[in-house]
Every structure is written in structure tokens, then in C-alpha cells.
Amino acid sequence: MSEPTTSRTVTVTINGTMVEREVATSKLLVHFLRDDLDLTGTHIGCDTGNCGACTVQVGGEAVKSCMMLAVQADGLDVTTVEGLAGDSGVLTPLQRSFGEHHALQCGYCTPGMLMSATALLEHTPHPTEDEVKVALQGNICRCTGYWNIVEAVVAAGKSGSA
């Protein structure tokens, strides 16, 4: 039996570490990550779920953490940009490719782009240019015009795993 409450205890595995916290049911996942857990690599660029700067992986899929309540992530695996290189500090081929292809300028959209592209490469290791564009459609970048980002993801796919 489940009765309505305004706060709940959630257990989420974030970047491989299990976290148990009491959260308000009205709290968005993105605020849980940024404000409660200090994982500030996940960004906020709009109020309406259009920009994708807050993209994280939940259960292996790219989702926008501003259109999801923290309580909805209960029991799930969440990966943020901080979890890509992990404790080893070794950048993923995709992260390196972003640098090599000048796929970022201000870097604000970058974490969301990386999370969307990482999910793509996990499903489709060697994507075509069109597949990359489709996967990144939900991520807005205002600096690069996307060309170098698409190129970086395609190149990461060519170079091997993500």
C-alpha cells in the first residue's frame, strides 16, 4: 500500500555509488543532483525541458533531469557527466574527441551533449552523421552551430567504443 506523501526516502545509484536521501516529492532530479549532491556538472538552460543541458542517463537511457522528479529515480542507476571519466580520471574517447574537434566553446551545454552522445554510442557504436543529429536533437548549443559536435561524435564512433 502506498499513500501519498510530500517527501520520500529514495535510493539511487549515482555514478556507481549508492545514495540514500530523504527528498521532497516536488524536487526535480536536476536540483537533487546539483543542490543536494553537489554534482554541478549537470546544467540548467531552460525552464521547459527543451535545451537538454540537464541530460543524464537513467537506467542507461538519456533523459532530461529537469522533467523528472527525484523520487521517480528511486531504485534506478543514474550517470552524470562526472561519472564518465570516473575515478580513474581517464577521459573517454568521446570526451577526448570533443576537445580534438573543438566541439565545445563555453562548455555549458557540453555535459548534456556528452550524456546524449554517450547513450547513443552505447546503443549504436558507429553512428552515421544523421544518427548523431537525431540523437542530439534534444540538446541545444548556442556557441558551435553543432557541426563540430556532430563531427566529434562520429569520430568517436569511428575510433572505437565510447
Binding site: 546539483r34 553537489d38 554534482l39 554541478t40 556538472g41 549537470t42 546544467h43 540548467i44 552524470t80 557527466v81 562526472e82 564518465l84 571519466a85 577521459l91 570526451q95 570533443f98 576537445g99 580534438e100 573543438h102 565545445l104 562548455g107 555549458y108 557540453t110 555535459p111 556528452l114
Partner: peptide, 23 residues
Amino acid sequence: QSVPRKEDRRLVEGQGTFVDDIK
């Protein structure tokens, strides 16, 4: 030369410091 950007490492790791990150 198109030398690699010094800014990129922290930004691709989500370790940039943007204003809303400051507490």
C-alpha cells in the same frame, strides 16, 4: 596552430565553475 584548448578538460568533465555552481 590549432593547439588543443586548455579550457576543455575541466568542461568535458563537468568541472567548470559556472555561477549557479557557487554556494
